[in-house]
Design a protein around this nucleic acid. Structure first.
Lengths: 299, 299
DNA sequence: TATTCCGATAGTGAC
DNA sequence: GTCACTATCGGAATGAG
């Protein structure tokens, strides 16, 4: 399944180039179930979540059984994400990466990093809650964190696939391996450099004030490099504590209050990598992030 | 001279269409004396100011004698208007409408009404003063007011030439005249309707805080209809007491202070014709002014 | 308070 | 707090040799 998921993640994008898929203006403020025959063979990805995880959520059912979609349907505005949990099989693989009875994972329609997924729980009672409330339930939280760990690993692999060739750490490992092979040594016996741990450059969390009502967890690479990153609020929503890491849950009540009160999105723009403050100069930050992106890939 | 002045006024514009002359970006923030041979025969316009008026100002001399321009020269930024009094003969008739030893009259480079002239006194001691100070001198003021009356009349004639065919009052007069002619009556003996007094729709004044340092008096039609009218401050600088009518001088000191303190340019946008308030909605005002312009022409 | 260019800010409407 | 669109508002430079 991992190979399949990766294929889907990359289907939408050419290497390093943010996607321009067939998105129409219609899809901006609403999500309509495509009428045509949807993806096939997606059951395989469903089976990759272990039965134990499904039972953990206590609501594992087939998507159809959950929502019983009678016909193509449109979810407008803040309900736009509902379409994906309502009828995930209706969407092409470029949109819906995988789904099972508990989760639907999609490529964010407006990615704010080079890789940006949304994890959509299908739990009927949780999916309408504010994330702070939904993630208070320790059982549900554990499931989410488990699922996130899986996707963090998959995103890491995708980063390695895309950017590994630029990485100094990866090159060091590759060279050592080649050297060992040339020397006729047993790879499994030799102590090779570790290569780069891309999973450290994957972040996962929820927004303090989500714009979409359906519960969704962002899983994205740390670079914040994307054509869709176009406003101060875009950046700050992924570069300040406005994004609450999934591992920080459960939050204390006072933590929730403190996070909610703060006007994170109007704050100065600060580079996630070097800490330089760009005030309200978004374009200057954008320009700077181009360089940081190149350097980051080379790590 | 009147015929000539009119010809110059209109040379720059096709009927009802704001001008797009050969203005380059260079001229935006500076005014350079053109190197090539300038206009000829402009002496005629000089002679149209009576000797009495010239003597009134006590500084009537030939333009060359006043400024003695040694070579093409550029006046940048807030000194841009100086080029016109420095070497008026260097400019084409589309730019400099007329000049003599006391005044240079030009088409405003960015007209804010369908007709918009600048009257530039050449008086050496006055031309660098703030208009409030310059116009305190009763002798100088009288000369200005005299000159303004002349230009008011010329602008009125230009308005009649351009828009007379739309005017109900003009039509009434034309029809009466035609009727009298058909009846074989003596035009000079018949009491005809007056036609439209376009001079009532000409305003002349100075800005409370001029942007150009050289003393200049605006003479413009009341319509505020122009492609160059693009900002709230543009409009308010000609539609509030920020513009001080030349006939309001001399001002009392307290009047000067009161006018200066007020933030006229940031005020709500109010239609000059119907008084409707557009708040800060400049585009809505612009749209509205299109209609008011048509109605105004029909008066 | 001249212009232009660029960009930040603000309000709207989406179904 | 999604998007896009429009428009308002705000700073900086403007030249010339």
């Amino acid at each position: 399944m991992e190979a399949k998921s990766q294929a889907r993640m990359t289907a939408k994008r050419s290497e390093e180039t943010p996607a321009q898929d067939g998105t129409t203006g219609e899809e901006i403020s609403s999500t309509t179930i495509p009428p045509s025959t949807p993806t096939k063979g997606q059951d395989s990805s469903q089976q990759l979540l272990s039965p134990s995880k499904r039972s953990l959520l206590n609501h594992a059912q087939s998507p159809v059984a959950i929502d019983a979609p009678p016909a193509p349907k449109t979810f407008a505005g803040r309900d736009g994400l509902r379409a994906y949990t309502y009828a995930p099989e209706s969407f092409p693989p470029s949109r819906v990466i995988s789904f099972n009875g508990s989760y639907v994972t999609i490529n964010d329609l407006y990615p704010k990093s080079s890789v940006h997924l949304l994890l959509l729980p299908r739990h009927p009672e949780k999916q309408r809650l504010h994330p702070f409330e939904a993630l208070q339930d320790p059982v549900f939280l554990a499931s989410i964190q488990d699922e996130v760990r899986k996707w963090r690993s998959l995103v890491a692999k995708e980063l390695q696939r895309r950017f590994g060739k630029f990485s100094a750490q990866e090159r060091k490992r590759d060279e050592a391996m080649e050297k060992a092979l040339d020397a006729g040594e047993d790879i499994d016996e030799v102590a090779l450099p570790q290569g780069r741990d891309w999973s450290k450059d994957v972040i996962a969390g929820v927004h303090t004030h989500p714009s979409m009502s359906h519960l969704h967890i962002h899983v994205l690479s740390i670079d914040r490099h994307s054509e869709c990153m176009r406003h101060r609020k875009h950046y700050n929503s992924f570069a300040t504590p406005f994004l609450v890491d999934v591992e920080d849950f459960p939050l204390s009540r006072e933590d929730m209050v403190r996070r909610s009160k703060e006007k994170w999105l109007d704050r100065d723009l600060v580079c996630w990598r070097c800490g330089r403050n760009f005030g309200n100069k978004f374009q200057a930050l954008k320009q700077h992030l181009e360089g940081e992106f190149e350097e980051w890939k080379k790590e």
